[in-house]
Design a protein around this nucleic acid. Structure first.
Lengths: 209, 209
DNA sequence: GTCTATATAGGGATAGAC
DNA sequence: GTCTATCCCTATATAGAC
């Protein structure tokens, strides 16, 4: 687990091919894996299958990645690399529904631009959770999910509001990643606008109080 | 796949132990599997692991189930066995947002009573989808998911409404199964009421038109 | 109905040639 | 940077004793 391979880069560098251009094989591996992990699931996808689609042998993958898990980790880091710092640097104690509304607006944009990544995460929860347990990727693992989870557990926020935040989050998730191909014809901008309106309806409700 | 084993029941019978009371080993297997499949994922869970928790050997499971897949199928049938016929017998062409609201009310009740089953399904999408492809369990496979999916693709319903249905569905899913243990302290009835209110807010919005 | 023992296959991973 | 060949392990599933 901790042993680093000779010349492979296992860190989160999004990098170009190191010396001469090798057409970014590393990125091709990640792209194919992203697709297969999403459709078949992480565990059901074998390295042989990935290599097959790439046109070369299974063992070649090990030049680029230390292990199968490392591929998933790299995809995980792609998610982290999205500009979600805005979401992480908020004060979790004094947060209001209006702030959540703004955050979800940003999140909708990110999800529209990187739908495939979010779908991967959605459909491989257990695999990603196993990642967290194995390798502590420094500090507190701060993806968007856990940000929301911590908010949902925050006793300072009234329960009713927390449930609404959860539902707003769920609306975005389902609207963008869980519907399969139901809304593929709809332009991203249009779909995003609709979701923003609905999120607003959830967080600033007409009924009650 | 098609070969039936000697004395095992591979159909959907929820049945009691056949002859003398064997304490319903079949159901015990399903309960343990439900738990392990949910926490670790279907693929990551081995029959040895299941047997271990049951206190007997791996091979014994094969007396009760033809295969590992058959266990998942049996759990799938538990979902089917929930009284969701009301949802299936609706007219999909002339359905309105009000009708959807009613259906979701029922769904919330079902999810509250059988949370574990829905969580299992949520976290093992790919495994369940593989089931559908392998074995055509007669007729059109009519679980709740596909009911919603067909509604989301129904061109007779305005796009805006379809997106709202998706979000309402998503709110219920996330509120009940995707939040982990965030709302475990909240009594089912209270949580259900909150969700019903929010679903109403989504489907009968204050903003727009 | 549960056991032990075994067959068989496939997975991840490594060594070393090119 | 990719290959072939191989190791080792674990998984599902079967056979047959008790």
């Amino acid at each position: 687990m901790a042993k680093l391979q000779g010349h492979a880069r296992n860190d989160g560098t999004v990098g170009q091919p190191s010396s001469s251009e090798g057409a970014g094989t590393r990125e091709r591996i990640l792209d194919i894996s992203l697709e297969l992990f999403t459709t078949q699931g992480y565990e059901k996808t074998s390295l042989r299958e990935i290599a097959e689609q790439l046109g070369f042998s299974k063992a070649a993958i090990y030049y680029h990645f230390e292990s199968k898990e490392a591929i998933l980790m790299a995809l995980h880091l792609r998610l982290h690399a999205l500009g979600l710092d805005a979401l992480r640097n908020i004060n979790r104690e004094t947060i209001t529904l209006e702030v959540w509304s703004t955050l979800l607006d940003h999140l909708i944009d990110q999800m529209l631009s990187h739908r495939a990544l979010f779908i991967l995460h959605e459909r491989n929860r257990t695999a990603f959770e196993a990642l967290h347990h194995d390798e502590r990727h420094d500090a507190e693992h701060d993806d968007i999910e856990s940000l929301f989870r911590s908010a949902l557990a925050n006793q300072n926020i009234p329960l009713k509001d927390r449930v609404r935040v959860a539902c707003a989050f769920g609306s975005v998730i389902v609207g963008l990643v869980m519907t399969g191909n139901a809304f593929v014809d709809v332009p991203d901008f249009e779909l995003g606008e609709m979701l923003r309106v609905i999120v607003h309806d959830i967080l600033v409700p007409s009924s009650s109080e």
